[in-house]
Structure formats: C-alpha cells, structure tokens
C-alpha cells in the first residue's frame, strides 16, 4: 500500500525499565522551560519526576 519505501530511523528511543528514557542518534533536544537546544548524540531523560538535574536522569529513581 505504501509507495514510499525509503524509511530510515534517525534515532533510537528506549524506555529503560524502572529507569530513564534513553535517546541516541540524530536528534535535536529542546528544553522549553530552560530554553536549551542541543544535539547531544545520547541522553538519559528522567521519567520518575524526582531528578534534581531535570530533564536529565540523576539516578534519583533508585532512592526509595
């Protein structure tokens, strides 16, 4: 059905179980609250809401 077969994933987005979101590859990260924009290659973003270094993971999810 699909005429456009040229498809290449630009990045990898991985949900780490009970942990952060890992993104790697060709992507632009924009942080609207802090006004930052970068192309870091790989990041680990907080998913638990407890990091003291948001939006990045600082392993706070391991502290109960």
């Amino acid at each position: 059905m699909d005429e456009n077969k040229e498809f290449r994933p630009e990045a990898e987005v991985e949900i780490l179980e009970s942990g952060p979101l890992r993104i790697s590859g060709n992507f632009i990260l924009k942080d609207l609250k802090r006004g930052d924009e970068s192309a870091p290659g790989e990041v680990f973003l907080c998913r638990c809401g407890k990091s003291n270094n948001k939006p990045f993971c600082d392993d706070s999810h391991k502290n109960k």
Partner: peptide, 25 residues
C-alpha cells in the same frame, strides 16, 4: 522532520517527533 525532534515540555511530557526506533519492554 529530520533529525528527530525531542521536546521537553514545560512542566509536561517529552514529545518526540520523526522517524525513530522505539524500544519498550
């Protein structure tokens, strides 16, 4: 959009847009 756009929304979610491999479970 290419490269993939990853936006950290103010007090909100991470919105990811484009062509990418999504790995969950």
């Amino acid at each position: 959009v290419s490269p993939v756009s990853v936006k950290v929304m103010t007090d909100g979610p991470i919105v990811i847009k484009g062509n990418f491999t999504f790995i969950n479970n």
